[in-house]
Amino acid sequence: MNIQLNGKLKNIDPHLTAAQLLASLDLTGQRIAMEVNQEIVPRSQHDTHLFNENDKVEIVRAIGGG
């Protein structure tokens, strides 16, 4: 199944949870936030959240800015 992850096509297992996706990206425990199709997926739901075909997933972090 394909999703758009930070603007790039990515093939994932349809049973992959949000937490497992983050683990596969070495992002477990990092300060990040996730949005799927412009809706926040809160940290409390990462363990159970599953993706759908063509989901637009954004994973963001804090960086320096003015």
């Binding site: 992850l5 930070n6 603007g7 790039k8 990206l25 070495d26 992002l27 990092q30 990040i32 936030a33 954004e58 994973i59 963001v60 972090r61 804090a62 960086i63 320096g64 800015g65 003015g66």
Partner: peptide, 14 residues
């Protein structure tokens, strides 16, 4: 102090 929100660099500079 201010900060910005940007995409994580997936697979680089971790």
């Amino acid at each position: 102090i201010t900060m910005a929100v940007r995409r994580t660099n997936i697979g680089q500079h971790q």
